[in-house]
């Protein structure tokens, strides 16, 4: 039964051509600017090169932007009364959140794949193991941001939700060390933010946990740190999403 719903939801995503285009193209564009065109891309790290690190960061940004906006759109569509319609069916709130999360993962595969193809055909170098692990983490971990979008979308009502989601993602991306390396107090703070955990985990197979910091000295992150970050955020966001979905059955 959930497969039928997932199929229909995928069909809806495919129908929205404009959004699909930006979902697919924007992170690839970022990678070409920040990664492929830079001379430092060829510097070696543990199991690959810096270009690979940048590629993973841009794929993470693309996946997060795609899944979070999907989550926010879900919140908006529930507020328009679809939540009430679904509230009249046996579909459980947790089940619904799970279907939307699965949908987000499917959608996240699009930018991740395109960035990877561009990376592989330019100067990205990494061991096959690092490739497989990084891509898997990028895809699986994107669930977190579908939930993030869903939660923020229900807290910020109406069309403002999409703005809140994309705006906050830019901030979280900087804190996630995606665009340039942080250091000191900012880095300490960043460790508690959700995109830092996700991106650090996705880069771990390439870097073995070494993070470039802006004051020059590389910092090493133990594996438990990003793992704990992702696990804690996953629990918080999944519970919040389910509770908020339940609330959206009532008239608004």
């Amino acid at each position: 039964m959930t497969l039928t719903i997932l199929k229909l939801e995928i069909r809806r995503v495919v129908r929205d051509r404009v959004r699909l285009f930006f979902t697919a193209i924007m992170p690839a564009f970022f990678y070409v600017i920040f990664g492929a065109a830079q001379s430092y891309g060829s510097i070696k790290v543990a199991h690959g090169n810096v270009a690979m690190m940048i590629m993973v960061a841009m794929a993470a940004y693309g996946a997060v932007a795609a899944t979070a906006s999907l989550g926010a759109a879900t919140a908006i569509e529930r507020a328009t009364g679809w939540g009430r319609q679904l509230g009249l069916t046996p579909l459980g709130d947790g089940q619904y959140v799970a279907i939307k999360s699965a949908l987000a993962v499917v959608v996240a595969i699009i930018p991740i794949t395109i960035v990877s193809i561009i990376g592989a055909s330019t100067d990205v170098e990494a061991t096959p193991k690092a490739w497989v692990l990084s891509i898997s983490i990028l895809i699986g971990g994107s669930v977190l941001f579908a939930l993030y979008g869903l939660v923020l979308g229900q807290l910020v009502r109406g069309e403002a939700a999409l703005g809140a989601v994309s705006g906050s993602l830019v901030v979280l991306s900087f804190l996630g060390n995606l665009f340039f390396p942080l250091s000191g107090g900012w880095l300490t703070f960043a460790r508690f933010t959700p995109l830092y955990g996700y991106a650090t985990l996705a880069r771990y197979p390439v870097s073995d946990g070494w993070v470039v910091s802006s004051d020059g000295d590389p910092v090493h992150e133990a594996l438990w740190m990003p793992l704990t970050n992702v696990a804690v955020w996953l629990v918080i966001l999944a519970v919040a999403a389910t509770l908020l979905v339940r609330r959206s059955r009532a008239r608004q």
């Binding site: 229909l8 069909r11 809806r12 129908r15 929205d16 569509e77 328009t80 009364g81 679809w82 939540g83 009430r84 319609q85 009249l88 008239r251």
Partner: peptide, 10 residues
């Protein structure tokens, strides 16, 4: 429902 929403793109 009076205000039961439908998805416009289906």
């Amino acid at each position: 429902l009076q205000t039961g929403g439908l998805l416009p793109d289906l």
